[in-house]
């Protein structure tokens, strides 16, 4: 279930209401998001599309608690994200959100294993438990034989798979992917999108992905467009499904 009309429906995992984000550049105010509404149910794969500067990444940052809105509210499950700040927000993010970036953003001095282990260092898991979780995440991504490799020893597609393993290793409530295939060739991009799609279909994950690539967006169950600071259904009109 994905809706953008702001009508209250039961069963939303993510509920966004009247979201505004305004930037100030000198004396000029830039309204990136205006009165944006969104409801996403658990297990959905949503793609956000739109021209550069339309606010796709800003929306993702707000949903992930990386940025604060100028107005409006975001609820995820029972948590009102927009009411949190500081340590509480950081803790919420660590438990509930997995991030995948366009440029992978792996720590170059750590191995694939150590990169994936990073979010688990903040938990109370024992070393053995951390190892088990990391190995599971990396094997899901088909990288069991690359655990000891450093990012520089991996291809772009493999690096992004490590980044996805890092994003899912703590079993977050939902994944936010910002142009996850933007830096990859077609073949690698399809592999990555196939993996993300499998996380949704086989493991019930909820994924929200920003992309400007229509072929990448086709992997999603729902495609939404950002226009004039608000979300609209795709021309195919598959929101509200």
């Amino acid at each position: 279930m994905v809706r953008v009309d702001g009508s209250d429906v039961d069963g939303s995992l993510i509920r966004v209401r009247n979201l505004d984000k305004t930037y100030r550049r000198g004396s000029e105010e830039i309204h990136v998001l205006q009165g944006l509404n969104l409801d996403v149910g658990a297990g959905e794969f949503v793609a956000f599309m739109g021209p550069s500067g339309s606010g796709k990444t800003t929306l993702l940052n707000l949903l992930g608690g990386l940025d604060t809105p100028s107005a409006g509210s975001i609820r995820v499950g029972e948590d009102t994200v927009t009411a949190m700040s500081g340590r509480r927000l950081t803790g919420w993010r660590a438990r509930h959100v997995g991030f995948v970036f366009q440029m992978y953003n792996l720590i170059p001095v750590l191995t694939a294993f150590q990169n994936v282990e990073l979010p688990l260092l903040l938990t109370n898991l024992s070393r053995a438990e951390r190892r088990r979780h990391v190995e599971t995440a990396l094997s899901l991504m088909g990288l069991s034989d690359r655990m000891k490799h450093y990012p520089r020893q991996l291809s772009g597609g493999q690096e992004q798979r490590v980044a996805i393993a890092r994003a899912i290793v703590a079993d977050p409530t939902f994944l936010l992917c910002d142009e996850p295939t933007g830096d990859l060739d077609r073949k690698s991009a399809d592999e990555i999108l196939g993996l993300i799609s499998a996380l949704v279909s086989e493991h019930g994950k909820t994924v929200l992905m920003v992309t400007h690539d229509p072929r990448a967006a086709e992997w999603a169950n729902v495609i939404l467009h950002l226009e004039k600071g608000a979300l609209v259904d795709s021309p195919q009109g598959n929101a509200g499904s």
């Binding site: 992930g64 990386l66 340590r87 950081t90 991030f99 720590i107 170059p108 703590a170």
Partner: peptide
């Protein structure tokens, strides 16, 4: 800077 931001993104606190 970017790596430190990633650490914060995955849950490292400011104090951490």
């Amino acid at each position: 800077i970017g790596e430190l931001a990633v650490l914060k993104t995955v849950g490292f606190t400011d104090a951490g």
